[in-house]
Simulated scan of single mutants.
Amino acid sequence: MEKNQLAFYEAVQQLDITRRALNEACEAYHISFEQFVLMKRIAVAGGIRPTQLSEDLHISRAAVSRKLTQLYYSNYLAKERSGVNEDQRVVIISLTPTGEIVVKKLDHFYQAKLARLKNPIEEVQATAKILEVLSQGI
């Protein structure tokens, strides 16, 4: 069990180091990596409701709302209310031109980082497997 615990702690440390590196790239734009992920999802969708973001990314609605508000005030997002005959409470979030530039720059940066990894998906899956095995023993 001692060897498994050490592997667990090392895997968590690697994930934390990776998280910090991802956040560092975003700091230049005063956003977190989580906010970048939201922006990337909005870019892919071309416009989306906040509740859909919450469901798709498995993030609480309150957390999504806080993150979107910060992005909105940074001029990275635009909000559009639904039409006259529709429910005015429904809001569609889309990227502003500034937001699109930020997503493109960060996406390019992350793609370059991923290209250096041997196989990032396999590495993440291997780490997740270690965590799964160890969580069963705890």
Rank of each mutant, 00 (worst) to 15 (best):
A45E: 15
R41S: 14
N4M: 12
D107K: 03
P120C: 04
Y73R: 13
A128K: 06
A25F: 05
T127F: 00
T69P: 00
K40D: 12
L15D: 15
L71N: 15
Q88V: 01
Q136V: 05
Q88A: 13
K105P: 00
H30G: 00
Q35M: 12
A78T: 12
E100T: 07
V84R: 09
S94Q: 11
R49Y: 14
K40Y: 13
C26K: 00
K40G: 02
S60A: 12
F36L: 01
N85L: 14
A25D: 08
V44A: 12
S54R: 03
T127Y: 00
A21L: 15
V12E: 06
Y72V: 01
Q125K: 15
A11I: 03
A7L: 14
S32N: 09
L117D: 09
Y29V: 02
T98W: 04
S74R: 15
A28P: 01
A21Q: 15
K113G: 06
I31E: 02
Y76M: 05
A25R: 11
N119T: 03
Y9K: 08
G46F: 02
V44W: 03
K67C: 02
Y110Q: 03
A7Y: 13
K40I: 01
Y76K: 07
E122T: 10
V133P: 00
K118E: 12
Q52Y: 04
Y29M: 02
E2L: 09
L77Y: 10
R41T: 14
E2V: 09
I42W: 10
Y72N: 13
S60V: 01
L131R: 01
V124A: 13
L57H: 10
Q136F: 08
V84C: 01
A21E: 15
T18F: 06
N119R: 06
E122W: 11
R116G: 10
T96M: 06
L95S: 06
A45F: 03
S94D: 07
H58S: 14
V91W: 07
I92D: 05
D87M: 07
I130L: 09
I138H: 08
G83H: 11
E123A: 12
I42F: 10
L131C: 02
T127N: 02
L134Y: 09
N119V: 03
A45Q: 12
R19I: 12
V90M: 07
T98P: 01
